[in-house]
Amino acid sequence: MSVPLNSRFNVGKIPYEILEKIVYSRLGFQDKNIVVKPGVGIDASVIRLGDGFIALACDPITAATEKAGWLSVHINANDVACVGAKPKYFMPTILLPEGSRHVDLEEVMDDMDLAAKELEVSIVAGHTEVTPSVNQPVIAGGIVGVGLGSEPVLSSGCREGDIIVMTKYAGLEGTSVIAHEYYDKLREIVGEEILVRAMSLMDMVSIVREAVAAYRHGASAMHDPTEGGVITGLYELCVASNAEIEVNLDEIPLMEETIAICKAVKIDPYKLLGSGALLVSIRADRFQSLKYEFEKMGIKYSIIGRVLKNGKCSLRVYRRGREVKYEFPFPDAIYSVRV
């Protein structure tokens, strides 16, 4: 597809074909130790180091202001965990808008410090400034993880016959962000009790524990759905693996709070910020041992689909027996919230 050079981007992720043409074709010197380089659906790059590997990832927090520091650590940690690495070293860039106070920076750092201690992650470098270029705090984090074994698990690893498993629920992060950001406006619509519970869903965004378990039980591929929700995460698995995947929306669980809030603001919960869920492609026989591990850990899981074949990139989505069409990429549903 030919895109005029002066055309403007929409809000959200850059179109995949533009990433391929403009970003992934300009990656500098390619060191021989790079095992996995950036690409669509790639959670983290992987570098060979001796007999093992390290994983590197970076992600910004742009939609949330509440607990942004805490969220930045966990969102980045999720990415390296998806390739089978333990999060170890975090590097944030904190951009504050004009008029920010000491207490604003202190809140960000308190939250970041708490999250880092929860994951046993060290904050080792970074940058902090006040700039007129932003109108709310923006945190761009980078993280280094150390491989749990000798080889990573890649999001390109989906194989024909695999089942697709999702942990927890869709839209957890987005539900919490909306509840925090629109609390006063939504209180009269959905009720204070639902909003309070919704805000607490942020505590469920880490998928490090379940990713480690899936790695140890032989997952073929893992992916952490973030912007664009679970649907985008599934499509990115298709792209990374060049695979045709079939998914049933009826099997993707939603929290009561997500259903209520998404109905109130008229958005699709499956297109909503998805951190907190982990997508796992795994052979059915290997899943038998993994599901017992999940149950022992108290982690909810659902079988939501299957890999039909490799060699064709396609996501087939069904609901109540009918196919549902999505056009990719699309802006995250959170950018469509109107109250």
Score class of each variant (00 low, 15 high):
residue 33 N to W: 01
residue 72 S to F: 01
residue 74 H to V: 14
residue 38 P to L: 06
residue 37 K to E: 11
residue 50 G to V: 14
residue 43 D to Y: 01
residue 33 N to E: 07
residue 31 D to T: 00
residue 54 I to N: 12
residue 67 K to E: 05
residue 73 V to A: 06
residue 30 Q to P: 04
residue 46 V to C: 09
residue 68 A to D: 11
residue 33 N to D: 12
residue 43 D to F: 00
residue 76 N to R: 05
residue 65 T to H: 05
residue 70 W to I: 04
residue 29 F to K: 09
residue 60 P to T: 08
residue 66 E to K: 10
residue 49 L to N: 15
residue 35 V to L: 13
residue 48 R to C: 11
residue 29 F to S: 07
residue 61 I to V: 15
residue 52 G to V: 12
residue 29 F to P: 00
residue 39 G to R: 08
residue 67 K to Y: 08
residue 34 I to A: 09
residue 51 D to C: 14
residue 69 G to N: 06
residue 35 V to M: 12
residue 65 T to E: 11
residue 52 G to W: 12
residue 56 L to S: 12
residue 75 I to D: 00
residue 74 H to N: 09
residue 50 G to A: 14
residue 68 A to S: 15
residue 36 V to A: 02
residue 72 S to I: 02
residue 72 S to D: 04
residue 59 D to T: 10
residue 44 A to F: 07
residue 46 V to D: 05
residue 37 K to L: 10
residue 45 S to M: 14
residue 55 A to W: 11
residue 64 A to F: 03
residue 36 V to K: 03
residue 56 L to V: 15
residue 32 K to T: 04
residue 43 D to E: 12
residue 76 N to F: 01
residue 54 I to Q: 11
residue 34 I to W: 10
residue 68 A to I: 13
residue 57 A to C: 10
residue 60 P to A: 10
residue 34 I to N: 07
residue 41 G to N: 05
residue 34 I to M: 10
residue 52 G to H: 14
residue 39 G to I: 03
residue 31 D to E: 07
residue 48 R to F: 13
residue 54 I to F: 13
residue 55 A to G: 13
residue 41 G to S: 08
residue 58 C to R: 05
residue 58 C to I: 02
residue 63 A to D: 09
residue 44 A to I: 06
residue 34 I to H: 06
residue 73 V to R: 04
residue 68 A to C: 14
residue 43 D to K: 01
residue 37 K to M: 10
residue 49 L to T: 15
residue 37 K to F: 11
residue 55 A to F: 13
residue 70 W to G: 03
residue 74 H to G: 00
residue 44 A to D: 06
residue 30 Q to G: 11
residue 51 D to T: 15
residue 48 R to G: 13
residue 35 V to Q: 09
residue 34 I to P: 01
residue 61 I to A: 03
residue 41 G to W: 07
residue 55 A to N: 12
residue 73 V to Y: 04
residue 34 I to D: 02
residue 54 I to E: 13
residue 37 K to T: 12
residue 67 K to S: 06
residue 72 S to R: 02
residue 29 F to E: 09
residue 72 S to Y: 02
residue 49 L to W: 14
residue 36 V to W: 01
residue 52 G to N: 15
residue 53 F to I: 15
residue 43 D to S: 08
residue 70 W to L: 11
residue 72 S to L: 04
residue 59 D to G: 03
residue 75 I to T: 06
residue 48 R to I: 11
residue 53 F to T: 12
residue 50 G to M: 14
residue 57 A to H: 07
residue 35 V to C: 04
residue 59 D to Y: 08
residue 63 A to K: 07
residue 75 I to W: 00
residue 41 G to H: 05
residue 66 E to G: 00
residue 49 L to F: 14
residue 36 V to M: 06
residue 32 K to W: 01
residue 58 C to A: 14
residue 59 D to K: 07
residue 47 I to K: 13
residue 60 P to S: 12
residue 65 T to I: 12
residue 63 A to P: 00
residue 46 V to P: 08
residue 57 A to D: 01
residue 52 G to Y: 13
residue 66 E to L: 00
residue 74 H to K: 14
residue 29 F to L: 10
residue 43 D to R: 01
residue 46 V to E: 07
residue 62 T to A: 10
residue 32 K to R: 11
residue 61 I to N: 01
residue 57 A to Y: 05
residue 63 A to L: 05
residue 30 Q to F: 04
residue 63 A to Y: 05
residue 68 A to W: 03
residue 31 D to P: 00
residue 40 V to I: 15
residue 49 L to E: 15
residue 49 L to Q: 15
residue 59 D to P: 00
residue 42 I to N: 01
residue 74 H to R: 14
residue 41 G to A: 10
residue 51 D to N: 15
residue 39 G to V: 03
